Every structure is written in C-alpha cells, then in structure tokens.
Simulated assay, not measured.
Amino acid sequence: MAETEKKGARSLGFEPYAIAQDEEYMNADQEEHFRGLLLEWKRQLMEEVDRTVHHMQDEATNFPDPNDRATQESEFSLELRTRDRERKLIRKIDEALERIDDHDYGYCEACGVEIGVRRLEARPTATLCIDCKTLDEIREKQRG
C-alpha cells in the first residue's frame, strides 16, 4: 500500500481499514469506518469555519493606512475563498454520508463498479472509480 494512501485516513485520526480475506465489499464494518472518517473530517472543517469567524471578528480593524487596510482585506478574502471551498466540501461529505445511509457508498456513479477501499480512504467523497475519473479528466482536458 502506498504511503499517500495511508496518509489520507491517518490525517483524520484513523488507521487504514484492515480488509479481511473474502470480506464482502462495503459491508456494515466498512460503512461504519467511512462514516466515522467522514464525520471526523466534517468536524475538523467546521472547527476551521468557527476559527475563521472568530479570527475575522477579532482582527477586524479599520486601519488608517490604506496599505494596511488592503493587506487585511486581501487576507480576509483569501480566508473566505478557502472557507467557501470547505463549505462545498462539507456538502460533498454530507452527500457521501447520505450514500452510506442508502448503502450506495463506494460504488461508481457512472458504471456501478466498486470504487475501492483504498481509493475511498484517500478521497472519501469519491463518486467515480479510477477508470471513470480518468476518462472524465481526459474529456475535461479536451474541452479546454
């Protein structure tokens, strides 16, 4: 197993799932593993949102110097863009949690094959298998 695959789950405080021989794909144990991983990721993102709000409230100062004001506005703008990306990620996490509840999690939306435990640990919100994702990226490049 590649070190980057291990890092995905470990960065969220999880050990990679130990797949037993002849274990059924996306059984209750695997679903629970990914539910915990997704909920922890969402919790961490929500903490970042709270920190940003507090930081912006605490740091909001009306500097008399236009350069200082511009610097602060740039920093706030960057933080808000980051939080917007995280807000979209939280939505994807919620959608993944719904797929777990519906027992559809871990299967490619395009072709229906198993996405794979290791790919899901690296990218828990994945909705496409690696082959369909590769084709999708090729098509995207061709469109410009």
Rank of each mutant, 00 (worst) to 15 (best):
M56Y: 06
M56N: 06
Q57P: 05
D58M: 10
A60F: 14
A60S: 15
T61P: 08
T61D: 15
N62Q: 14
N62A: 14
F63I: 07
F63G: 11
P64E: 08
P64I: 01
P64W: 04
D65Y: 10
D65S: 12
P66K: 05
P66D: 01
N67C: 10
N67V: 11
D68P: 08
R69G: 10
A70E: 12
A70R: 07
T71P: 10
T71F: 15
T71G: 13
Q72S: 09
Q72T: 07
S74R: 12
S74K: 09
E75D: 13
F76V: 11
S77M: 06
L78D: 08
E79D: 10
L80K: 13
R81K: 15
T82M: 12
T82K: 12
R83Q: 15
R83T: 07
R85P: 03
R85A: 13
E86M: 08
E86V: 08
R87P: 07
K88M: 11
K88Y: 15
K88A: 13
R91Y: 15
K92I: 08
I93S: 05
D94N: 13
D94H: 08
D94A: 07
E95K: 08
E95G: 07
A96W: 00
A96E: 04
L97W: 01
L97P: 01
R99L: 09
I100T: 00
D101R: 10
D101Y: 06
D101K: 10
D102F: 14
H103E: 09
H103Y: 08
H103R: 15
D104C: 02
D104I: 03
D104P: 03
G106C: 01
G106M: 07
G106S: 02
G106T: 05
Y107N: 03
Y107I: 03
C108P: 04
C108K: 02
A110K: 07
A110L: 02
A110D: 05
A110F: 03
C111G: 05
C111A: 02
G112Q: 00
G112M: 04
G112T: 02
V113F: 06
V113H: 09
V113G: 06
I115D: 02
G116D: 01
G116L: 01
G116R: 05
G116W: 06
V117Q: 01
R118I: 02
R119K: 00
E121M: 07
E121I: 06
P124F: 06
P124V: 01
T125S: 01
T125D: 04
T125Y: 00
A126N: 05
A126Y: 00
A126K: 04
L128D: 01
L128N: 00
C129I: 04
I130T: 06
I130C: 04
D131K: 09
D131Q: 10
D131E: 09
C132W: 01
K133T: 06
K133N: 00
K133E: 09
T134F: 13
L135T: 11
I138A: 12
I138P: 05
R139P: 11
K141L: 14
K141Q: 15
Q142V: 15
Q142C: 12
R143M: 09
R143Y: 11
